[in-house]
Simulated assay, not measured.
Amino acid sequence: MEYYFLGTGAGRPSKQRNVTSGILNLLAECGTCWLFDCGEGTQHQLMKSPYKPGKISKVFVTHLHGDHIFGLPGFLTSRSYQGGHSKVTVYGPPGIQLFLKTVFQVSESHLDYELEVVEIQEGIVMEDNRFKVEAAMVDHRIDSFGYRVTEKAGERPLYAGKLKERGIAPGPLFAQLKRGESVCLENGEQLHAKDFLGPAVTGRTLAVIGDTRSCARSVELAQDCDLLVHEATFAHRHQSLAADYGHSTAVEAAEIAKEAGVQKLVITHLSSRYQEEEAGLLAEAKEIFPETYLAHDFWGTAVPKRK
């Protein structure tokens, strides 16, 4: 489980950073990847990355500003030519369906796979037997969402050694206990699953916060997360400017991480005005939350397991 950055800039692309997009690598967990935002040029960034468009099954859009969605029509239409024929679901704020419908209709684009577009509200937007994704509205100039991805707890491990000590060989009895069932041995002894199963493996959690001012909803989304990806468009000396434009400073992102009790923070969505002083942004954040990292295009970070 890794979050890989395709674009980490704010507003417009620069020579160092493309606009926002990131991939959650779930290939080991469920054989697919999820895309978070899809700014202009994302399909070009994908070509330079280790990830294939055909492996992307879901797209989560935080809000409808161009630097987060202008690459979406291009990615979706060219995916067919790059080996992608499986279904894709796009989740996003109200208006995302009209945006895609209009582009496809005017450009007479054709997709060789099923596309589902889900206009979200706050709450659970997607859930299966392995993951749950929740959305909450944050504080930007237009409707903007943050997402929280929760990996559900894994199966309880079986203490096989304890069974072998009793002379029980691997086989059907192991499987029954693993399923939580009690078993009866030939000598009449009852074995109860609770005595041979460890605690469930804790799932990992990730929060991706879209463009936002510092707000309480971000803390709620990120509460106890293993990884928080949060925008840090401005340096703290430009805090008033950040508030005017609906963005956060690196310091504010660090304060969110600290208050939420996350394990690791990655700051992204950096304004190009700080190209020569990005180390300063990182230092500002690390002073408040030491486990802070600065995102770069074509860089990934693992979602750590809770210690």
Score class of each variant (00 low, 15 high):
Asp224Gly: 09
Gln190Leu: 14
Pro157Lys: 07
Ala200Trp: 08
Thr268Phe: 04
Lys55Tyr: 10
Met137Tyr: 06
Val149Gly: 02
Phe99Ile: 10
Phe60Ala: 00
Gly41Ala: 08
Phe289Ala: 02
Val117Arg: 06
Tyr245Thr: 12
Lys58Gly: 01
Pro94Glu: 12
Gly210Gln: 05
Ser144Leu: 06
Thr202Asp: 10
Leu98Trp: 10
Leu76Ser: 07
Lys87Phe: 05
Ser86Asn: 15
Leu206Glu: 04
Gly210Phe: 04
Ser248Lys: 07
Gly9Leu: 00
Gly154His: 10
His65Leu: 11
Leu221Lys: 02
Cys184Gln: 12
Tyr245Phe: 14
Val303Phe: 07
Phe75Val: 08
Ile168Leu: 09
Thr249Gly: 03
Phe104Glu: 05
Val125Cys: 08
Lys101Cys: 01
Leu197Tyr: 04
Ile267Asn: 01
His63Asn: 15
His238Leu: 13
Thr89Ile: 12
Ser272Ala: 10
Glu165Asn: 14
Leu294Arg: 05
Ser86Lys: 15
Ala200Tyr: 08
Lys87Met: 11
Ala10Gln: 04
Asp297Gln: 02
Thr89Gln: 09
Gly9Glu: 01
Leu158Gly: 03
Ser144Asn: 09
Tyr113Glu: 06
Ile209Ala: 06
Arg79Asn: 09
Leu227Met: 13
Pro93Asn: 04
Ala302Asp: 14
Gly22His: 04
Lys52His: 15
Gly83Lys: 11
Pro73Gln: 09
Thr42Phe: 03
Glu119Arg: 02
Val61Ala: 06
Leu185Gly: 06
Gln45Thr: 05
His296Val: 00
Ile209Val: 15
Asn25Trp: 05
Glu134Thr: 15
Gly246Asn: 05
Ala160Pro: 01
His65Arg: 11
Gly41Glu: 03
Gly74Arg: 06
Val90Asp: 02
Val251Pro: 02
Leu158Thr: 06
Tyr51Asp: 06
Glu231Cys: 12
Glu40Lys: 14
Ile96Gly: 01
Ala279Cys: 00
Asn129Arg: 13
Lys48Gln: 14
Phe174Leu: 05
Val90Ala: 04
Leu282Gly: 05
Ser248Glu: 03
Leu281Pro: 03
Ile209Ser: 02
Thr205Ser: 15
Arg148Asp: 07
Gln45Glu: 13
Gln105Gly: 00
Tyr3Val: 14
Lys305Cys: 10
Leu64Lys: 03
Ala302Tyr: 09
Val106Pro: 00
Gly154Phe: 09
Arg156Tyr: 01
Asp128Phe: 05
Ala28Glu: 15
Glu255Asp: 10
Gly31His: 09
Gly198Phe: 06
Glu155Leu: 13
Tyr293Cys: 11
Gly171Leu: 04
Thr102Gln: 11
Gly171Phe: 04
Thr8Gln: 01
Asn129Gln: 13
Arg237Pro: 00
Pro53Leu: 10
Ile267Tyr: 00
His140Ala: 15
His269Cys: 10
Arg130Ala: 08
Leu197Asn: 07
Ser80Lys: 13
Gly198Asp: 13
Ala283Tyr: 00
Ser109Phe: 11
His296Tyr: 11
Ser21Met: 06
Asp226Arg: 07
Glu252Trp: 02
Glu155Tyr: 09
Phe75Arg: 07
